[in-house]
Design a protein around this nucleic acid. Sequence first.
DNA 1: CTCCGTGCAAACTTTTTGCAACGGG
DNA 2: CCCGTTGCAAAAAGTTTGCACGGAG
Lengths: 158, 158
Amino acid sequence: MTTTAPHDQVKDRLEQAGQRYTAGRQALVVFLHTAGHPVDMNEITAASPGLPMSSVYRNLVVLEQAGAVTRLQGPGALARYELSEELLGHHHHLVCSSCGRMEDYQVPPEVEGALLAATRSAASNNGFKATGHRLELRGLCARCGQATPGATEPHPLT
Amino acid sequence: MTTTAPHDQVKDRLEQAGQRYTAGRQALVVFLHTAGHPVDMNEITAASPGLPMSSVYRNLVVLEQAGAVTRLQGPGALARYELSEELLGHHHHLVCSSCGRMEDYQVPPEVEGALLAATRSAASNNGFKATGHRLELRGLCARCGQATPGATEPHPLT
DNA sequence: CTCCGTGCAAACTTTTTGCAACGGG
DNA sequence: CCCGTTGCAAAAAGTTTGCACGGAG
C-alpha cells in the first residue's frame, strides 16, 4: 500500500513550474501518499501539530498548480486533497454522507467504459464540451454504518 | 420548460416538517424551478436585490431538511442549490471547470444501468454501504468554450 | 546576493447564529 | 395570543494575503 512516494514525478513537475521541492512539500506529499485517501485540513494539522495552516494551504496551491495534487470539494465545507490522477491513476470515490470521509474506488471496466461513452455523448450536449467525468458513490462508511443514518452531521475526527 | 412550479409537493413537505410555505420560500422555489439548473448565492441575490442573505440561507436549510431542495458543492467555494431529485427526478450534472456553472443532464439508460450496478457492487466494498451515486461530467460550458481553457478561475457572473 | 519559501497575523468570503420585531392562524 | 419567520448585525469557519525574516542556490 505504501509504495514509494512519487517524489521524482512531483519534483519534476514543481521544477517545471519554477518551484522547489522543499521539505514541507515533501512532507505533504508523503502524508497524502500514505493516507491513501483524500484528506482535509483537520487530518493534515492533526498529523503535524504546530504546522501553520497558511503554509499548508500555500503548498497545496503550488502542488495543485504543478499538477501533483487535486483539490476536491466534499459534502462539507472542508476541501479535501489527494495526489493527482496523473500520479495516482484514474479513479473515483466513495463518499460517506454522514462524516464526509472519502475513499478511492475503482469501478469495474464495463462501468468505466459506460462513463467514457457518456462523456463522449455529452460532448455534444447544450454547447458543453465534456472532457472528463467524476463519479461519487454515496453511502455510509464503516465507521458511520450504525450511527444516525440519514443525518448529514460530521463525525468526531479523521 | 417552465412547467408549473411544484408548489403543492413543497408545501406538503414543509407542513409535514411543521413549517410554513411562506412568500419568501415560494419565491425561492420559483426561482430554483425557473432557473432550471443549480444556482448559487450570487445568482439568487442578483435576482432579488436587497433580499437578506441570512433569510435565504435559512430558507434553503429549511427546504433542504424538508427534502425539497438539494445543496450541491460545486468546484468553487460557493454552494449551489436545486430542487431535490424527489421533485425533479434522478439526474446528473454537467460542470464547467472554468466558471463552475452546472447544468442538469440525463445520462443514457445503459449508463444509468451501469451506475446502478456499480453502486450495488460497491455496496460490499471496504465496509462502505453505498446507497446512491452522483456523476459529474466536467468540461467547458458554452460561455467558457473559447476562454482560458485549462484555467479554473470563475467567470464574471451568472 | 538574490529569490523563493516560511511563519505569523490580519483580511476576506461564505455561511451560521442571536435577538428583537412582525404577522398569520 | 403563539409560534414560526424575518431582518439586521455580529460571529464563526475556512481560506487567502501582506509583510518581514531566513535559507538555499
